[in-house]
Simulated assay, not measured.
Amino acid sequence: MEGISGVVHPTETNPGGYDYERARALMTAEVNAAIAGVLEAVPTAEVLVADAHGPFRNLLPEELDRRVRLARGKPRPLGMLAGLDDATDAVLFVGYHARSGGGPAVLAHTISDAVLDVRLDGRPVGEIGLNAALAGFHGAPVVLISGDDAACAELRELVPGTATVAVKQALGQAAAIALHPDEARAQLHRVAARAIRRHDQVPLVTLPGPLRVEVDLYGPYTVDLATLIPGVSRAAGARTVAFTADDVAQAYGLVQLLTQLAQIKPG
């Protein structure tokens, strides 16, 4: 939702907040625009939409294109990419945001406020990098991203051949110059169709294992809990834990678990 045109403030992205309901509608409309582009290019395509913001219950099901299926709710296998498998031909990232520390970028963070940074073999990655790597592990290229200019640049660095739709130019963490929502949707429709037609020309993000994973956590109590997981140890710095994963899928799952542990408060 952070990468939807017109959305710039945390209260717009949190249930119960100012203009959250408007943001839900804007998010659903941009997803529908991407769907329309995909199905224009390949009318027989099977499209699965994974609601992947916050509680994973933001898209308005009754307003979504009736030709698709919707993955909704959490926790769930593969997290933000629920439903991804080895038969997936392409993945599109709609409404994405840049990683923590990737500013100036609108609402930049990595997974949640409980996670300060994630590094794979020393390289910082946010949700864009983690999800692109998981898609690549399953043989699916990320053919499109929409969001602010920083999010688009983040994926383009990993996947030079990907298509981008910058629906806003970041001025800071909570400010941007945005396209009109109608223009954002028109561009998404057009670019999604073009991206799907050339999906077999987009390279995969491949990170061969084993991988050294480091996660900087906001809360020291979460670090204490994390070290109870076999294979996870306290690393340099009071807020850093580390582990070695056999592959990207295992790394992704453990990062998900660490994020959920951060929701547990001291008894």
Rank of each mutant, 00 (worst) to 15 (best):
V143P: 09
A175C: 10
I177T: 14
Q169N: 14
G147V: 12
P160Y: 14
V143E: 02
Q169A: 15
A170R: 13
L171V: 14
E154L: 03
A174P: 00
A178Q: 09
K168Y: 03
A133I: 05
A133G: 10
H180Y: 13
G129P: 02
V118L: 03
G161H: 12
C152Q: 06
L120K: 07
F137M: 02
D148G: 09
A175M: 11
V125R: 10
S146P: 13
V118G: 04
P160W: 12
Q173L: 12
D121S: 11
A133W: 08
G147S: 09
E127H: 09
F137R: 03
A151R: 09
A178E: 05
V167F: 06
G172I: 11
G122L: 08
G122T: 10
G147L: 07
L134P: 04
L171R: 12
T164H: 01
L134R: 00
I177A: 14
H138S: 09
V165T: 00
G136A: 05
A151N: 10
A170H: 10
A150S: 11
A133P: 00
R156W: 15
E154G: 01
A151M: 07
P141S: 12
A174W: 15
A153Q: 14
G126Y: 04
L158M: 13
D148V: 10
A133E: 01
Q169S: 15
I177M: 15
S146Q: 08
V165W: 10
N131S: 01
P124D: 04
H138D: 03
A150N: 05
I128N: 05
F137V: 12
L155N: 07
A151D: 11
A174T: 15
S146K: 03
A163W: 10
L130G: 03
L120T: 13
T162D: 07
R123T: 15
L158A: 07
V118Q: 00
R123W: 13
R119P: 08
I128C: 07
A140K: 07
V165G: 08
L171E: 15
T164W: 08
D121L: 06
P160L: 10
L144I: 13
I145K: 00
I177N: 13
V118W: 06
G172T: 12
L158E: 07
G139N: 05
L144T: 04
V165R: 02
L130P: 07
V142C: 07
A170Q: 07
A151L: 01
A175K: 02
I177P: 02
V167D: 05
A151I: 11
G172M: 07
V165E: 08
A175F: 08
D121Q: 02
L155C: 09
H138I: 05
G129N: 05
V165H: 09
G129D: 02
I128T: 12
G172Y: 13
G161V: 02
L130E: 00
G126C: 08
T162N: 06
R156Y: 14
K168M: 13
G126D: 11
A135G: 01
G161I: 13
R119K: 13
L120A: 01
D148K: 10
P141K: 03
A174Y: 15
A135K: 01
G136M: 05
I128P: 00
A153W: 01
A151K: 04
L155D: 03
L120V: 14
A135F: 09
V165D: 03
L120M: 09
A178N: 05
A166V: 10
G147F: 03
G139V: 08
L134K: 01
I145A: 01
P181Y: 08
V165P: 04
A133F: 00
N131K: 03
